[in-house]
Write a protein that binds this DNA or RNA. Structure first.
Lengths: 208, 208
DNA sequence: AAAAAAAGTGAACATTTGTTCAAAAAACAC
DNA sequence: GTGTTTTTTGAACAAATGTTCACTTTTTTT
């Protein structure tokens, strides 16, 4: 979850997490300074202030020592950190009511990475998106949504079949562009009832 | 799990747990005293010493503040289903001793997906692997290992700098092939001491 | 009941920890 | 380039925190 944090700020946040993980309690500013190879606690102090301004770090009232704790890392440690995401082998008409029968498994993914929206994982078949660097066998992180902008990669239903295409809205039609030079775009009249947007692609997982 | 603890001692232990749960960090002795309705920190001090003797409580060396943590309540470990994978901003010479200073964050990933080996995540800079459908900004799942086969995508150190290349062992040299038609392969004598393999690419994460 | 262990108090003290300040260097945006 | 933000340093200071001590009270054990 990037929140306009600078590299250094993220580094400090990470050092706190790591210290906490390792010792069971949060570090002091001087301990942080040493971990990060800095010479003075004052620098750390300033960075912590910024992290608080940006809302990613909390402290006890008044200058309590070691009273840092990272927003979002509450309680269950990995409790809220990860979520189970279903892997769908085949997209069928009934979406988005994800039928259990279509589930081919599930993966636990970091909430920071996939976000909080309603998502599922879809395995890519074929090479229609190769120019967008999406390969056969890749897993797509798909967010269930109707709203998408020009240029988004979307999952759409067309004649009872699901496809991955890049989306462009034109004057009175929708253009679905396969990212493969050897394939032709598909044009959909704006009012075609057989056409339906399932969601848009938010991420990608690949294994070698 | 009673270890000849007095009622009071168990009460103090419970207060620490509760405070930690509620605030995200451990209490001071005076805070404990107040929680327990005691007037002085000295009493708490004495009890904490006993808890340490009996091995149910740990503290940092020297009089570190708030450095208590209850043995057996280790929070981390994250159930085994997921593991925390560090994100490395820059690969430096000292690998694989991952320097804290280089950590830019971490992601929890499914153990089934990344496996049990020693791994980290590396952010791709540049377009040298575009023909392998790896893009600028992607996160690579890198397994720390020396052994790699022809055709593997590896992370290698060359002159204090890290690169992502495809690996081919030839007769008396190694060929590092950038997967970008506009770039030339690099040839390394088999005994070049400045050449070092960090690991190989096992997976890829991308966010749109 | 007597003895021993544990718990509690208040004050002083030593150390750790957070905070501020002025100044400079580095990174970043325009 | 210029100007702005961020990062860094060193020192001093204030506040929080842990520690010790002598002593009293309570609880537990014998």
């Amino acid at each position: 979850m990037d929140k306009n944090l600078t590299f250094k700020q993220r580094q400090v946040l990470e050092a706190i997490r790591r210290f906490q993980q390792e010792n069971g309690y949060p570090p002091t500013m001087r301990e942080l300074a040493e971990l990060l190879g800095m010479a003075s606690a004052a620098g750390v102090h300033k960075i912590l202030l910024m992290l608080q301004e940006k809302g990613v770090l909390r402290r006890g009232e008044g200058g309590k020592s070691r009273s840092y704790h990272i927003v979002g890392d509450e309680a269950g440690e990995s409790g809220g950190r990860t979520r189970a995401c279903p892997i769908i082998g085949k997209v069928v008409a009934g979406m988005p009511e994800l039928a259990v029968e279509e589930r081919e498994g599930e993966l636990y993914l970091d909430s920071d990475w996939v976000g909080q929206e309603d998502i599922f994982l879809l395995r890519v078949r074929g090479h229609s998106m190769i120019d967008a660097d999406i390969r056969d066998g890749d897993l797509l992180v798909v967010q269930l949504t109707q709203s998408c902008r020009n240029g988004d990669i979307i999952i759409a239903m067309l004649d009872e079949e699901a496809t991955v295409k890049r989306f462009y809205k034109e004057k009175d039609r929708v253009r679905l562009q396969p990212e493969n030079q050897s394939m032709q775009p598909i044009y959909i009249p704006i009012d075609d009832p057989t056409f339906r947007i399932i969601g848009k692609v938010k991420g990608l997982l690949r294994r070698y």
